[in-house]
Amino acid sequence: MKKYEIKLDRRDFLKSSTMLGVSTIAPGVFFQQLAHGRDLDEPASSKIRWGMLINTNQCTDECDACVTACNEEHGIEDFGRPTTDTQWIRKLTLTSETTEESINVPMMCQHCENPPCVDVCPTGASFIRADGIVLVNKHTCIGCRYCMMSCPYKARSFVHENLENQLPHAPRGKGCVESCNLCVHKIDNGENNTACAEACQKDGHQAILFGDLNDVESDISKQLKKYESKEVRSDLGLNTAVRYRGI
C-alpha cells in the first residue's frame, strides 16, 4: 500500500486556514505573519512522521495540564454542556478489572497511518498530510459526522455552538468536525512540540513526548526502541502515531 495517499501541501492548508481566519474572526485584518520555521513553499515532508509517546506511569491523577494547555492553545471554550462541548484531548481513567489498579491515559486523535476518518469522508475534507498529521480542512467539511462514526478512538468533536474570540492560528468553525491537529501551527513555525507535551514537561511529569518517528536519532525513536510501547486497538491495524507505555 502507498504510504500516504493524500498529499495536500502545507501552503494550501495554511492559505486556507488563514483565509478562514480572515473571514470568520476579524474581517479586514490579515494574518500573514505566521512564524517561519521552513520556507512557506516547502510542503510537509513525507520523510518525517510526527508522533507522540505517552508514558502513563508518569501521568498523575490530579493533573490536567495537557487538557488545559490544549484548550488554551486552540481557544476551545467550555459552554457548560459536557455532552456537546469540544474535547481534543481527554484524560481516561482505566481501572483494571482484575487487579483494580488504575492508570491515567491522555487520549486524543491517534494520527493513524490508515485513518478510517479519511477513508469515509465524502468530500475529502479529512486528510492526512505527508508528515502523518491527520487534519480537517475547514473549507470543505460539510459537517456530516461520518468521520466521527468511523473513528475507533472517539477522537473527534463536532462544533455544536457559535464560536467567538477565535485565535488567529487556530481557526475553527461551527458545524464542522475537528480533532487534535498535533499543534500543526507550532510544527509549521518550527517549534516542533505540542502544547500538551510542553505543559506536561513544565509540570515535571514528562508523560508526553513529541517527535519524529522516522528519525532514528530523535528522543521518541530512542525511547520507542528502548521500552515496550503499545498502540491502542492495534488489532485494527491502523498504525497509529501515538503510542503508549504502561498499558
Partner: peptide, 8 residues
C-alpha cells in the same frame, strides 16, 4: 480488560 472513565 479495563473499565474506562472520562469527561468524554
Amino acid at each position: 480488560g479495563y473499565t474506562e472513565n472520562s469527561s468524554f
